[in-house]
Simulated scan of single mutants.
Amino acid sequence: MTHEAQRTAGPPARGWREATEEALYGPYGFYHRPEGPAGHFRTSVHASPLYAAAVARLLRRVDAVLGHPDELAFVDVGAGRGELTAGVLAELPADVAARTRAYAVERAARPEGLDPRVQWRAAPPTGVSGLLFANEWLDNVPVDVAETAPDGSVRYALVHEDGTEELGGPVAGPDADWLARWWPLGAEPGLRAEIGRPRDAAWASAVATLSRGLAVAVDYAHARDARPPFGTLTGFSEGRETRPVPDGGCDITAHVALDACALPGGRLLTQRAALAALGVSGGRPPLTLAATDPAAYVRALTRAGEATELTARGGLGDFGWLAQPVGTALDDLFAGDLLVDVADHEEQ
């Protein structure tokens, strides 16, 4: 993006956090468009119903650890148009579904035709027990961008409505403290970082709504020892990555420093490891099935292809999962093979 020293027309430049907030969630923002996120990009939820089935299995594990309470919560934060919420309900056995209170948390209006059992909310319910699941939510929590200036100082990147940028004042206070701890920038001009403090706070607030259970955040992610040197801020529109322009015409997103978001007791892992432990496998069905039941073979082959997409290296399988227990231990919620740190898993 182009830095401009002076502008003589148009509104003044703003920080990326303020500009993104209006572009995504303002009255004419991107997330109020009728086609919804699925009209512009493909998430794991849209890739295959296997994803909702895996989340439903995780909810049942949480239910068992909690002792099968009379009321079990499933809270879908950043619910889009409620696709995951409805999919999870559809995958639950009747007895579990009858006890489950499903909440879709989204700032857009409730879509037509959504399962009437789904409660549509602008914020998570408080004091509930169960599973809070945030799939590709934190990457759309707006953040400011910092950049190393030619003189070596770290300054805010300011943006105009047309996407052009200029450098603003120096980063100071809590934002500077966050960068020093989680994403220190060197002196080379042009180095960039997204200041993840608002995401840390948003995640802590979401986790605090649970009285017992598990909170999971799934997103594009990076860790402190491998931060991208020029940041990750980008746009998406009509299925394509595009230049981020805060005019409401595209999604604006940035990868998440999930390690900074993690609260005590949380663990990071890859989606590949998490889904494998939840029964999602890309193994091909035996060829003998093709001879005995061709239709079943085709269905199994389709599921295997979808599972491969969800767990692929270099793709959805590299997404980070942050698993945060509340009032219980992870060992009680997951099989042992799920408790694998990202780095350890990649070495196997």
Results as ranks from 00 to 15, higher is better:
Ser205Arg: 08
Gly163Arg: 09
Pro93Leu: 08
Pro27Phe: 04
Val128Phe: 01
Gly113His: 13
His345Glu: 15
Glu346Asp: 05
Asp344Met: 10
His40Leu: 00
Arg57Thr: 13
Thr242Glu: 14
Glu4Val: 15
Arg227Val: 14
Thr20Glu: 00
Glu83Gly: 04
Pro294His: 10
Thr308His: 08
Trp16Asp: 12
Gly152Pro: 07
Gly239Met: 05
Pro294Leu: 11
His255Lys: 12
Ala9Gln: 04
Leu191Ile: 04
Arg17Ala: 04
Leu268Ala: 10
Pro264Glu: 02
Val145Asn: 02
Gly67Tyr: 03
Gly78Trp: 10
His345Val: 03
Arg192Asp: 07
Leu275Lys: 12
Ala257Glu: 04
Ala97Phe: 03
Arg57Ile: 09
Trp203Met: 05
Arg99Asn: 08
Ala38Trp: 09
Asp63Glu: 15
Thr100Cys: 11
Tyr103Trp: 12
Leu233Phe: 12
Gly196Leu: 06
Val326Pro: 06
Val75Tyr: 03
Ala291Ile: 01
His3Ser: 06
Ala312Thr: 05
Thr8Lys: 02
Ala223Glu: 15
Val128Glu: 08
Val118Gly: 07
Asp177Pro: 02
Arg7Trp: 14
Pro116Gly: 00
Leu58Tyr: 07
Asp70Phe: 01
Pro264Arg: 07
Gln6His: 13
Val75Gly: 01
Arg33Phe: 10
Ala98Trp: 07
Asp219Lys: 08
Gly152Met: 06
Asp225Cys: 02
Thr311Met: 07
Ala223Ile: 03
Gly113Leu: 14
Gly190Tyr: 01
Ala52Tyr: 05
Thr328Val: 15
Pro49Asp: 03
Trp178Gln: 00
Ala262Cys: 13
Pro286Gly: 10
Val298Thr: 10
Gly327Asp: 12
Ala254Asn: 12
Ala5Asn: 11
Pro150Arg: 08
Trp203Lys: 06
Glu165Trp: 07
Glu346Phe: 04
Ser44Tyr: 06
Arg272Ile: 01
Ala291Leu: 14
Gly169Arg: 11
Leu233Thr: 06
Asp70Ser: 13
Pro325Val: 10
Leu339Thr: 09
Thr328Met: 13
Ala223Met: 14
Ala296Thr: 05
Gly36Ile: 01
Thr20Gln: 12
Trp203His: 04
Asp247Met: 00
Asn135Tyr: 12
Gly168Tyr: 05
Leu50Val: 05
Leu131Phe: 01
Glu309His: 03
Pro325Lys: 10
Ala343Tyr: 00
Leu92Ala: 06
Ala146Cys: 08
Gln348Asn: 06
Gly190Asn: 04
Gly279His: 10
Ala19Pro: 01
Pro294Asp: 13
Ala323His: 02
Ala335Lys: 00
Gly320Pro: 02
Tyr297Asp: 09
Gly36Phe: 07
Val154Ile: 15
Val154Asn: 00
Leu278Cys: 12
Val154Asp: 06
His46Leu: 09
Pro27Ala: 14
Asp76Asn: 11
Ala290His: 13
Val141Ala: 08
Pro286Trp: 09
Glu306Val: 03
Ala97Leu: 09
Ala79Lys: 00
Ala176Gln: 09
Asp337Val: 05
Gly26Met: 12
Glu18Val: 06
Ala102Phe: 04
Pro174Phe: 02
Glu136Pro: 10
Cys250Arg: 14
Ala38Pro: 03
Asp225Glu: 15
Leu214Lys: 05
Arg192Thr: 07
Trp120Ser: 08
Thr253Gly: 07
Tyr51Gln: 10
Ala122Cys: 02
Val342Cys: 02
Pro27Leu: 10
Gly169Ala: 15
Gly231Glu: 00
Ala64Val: 13
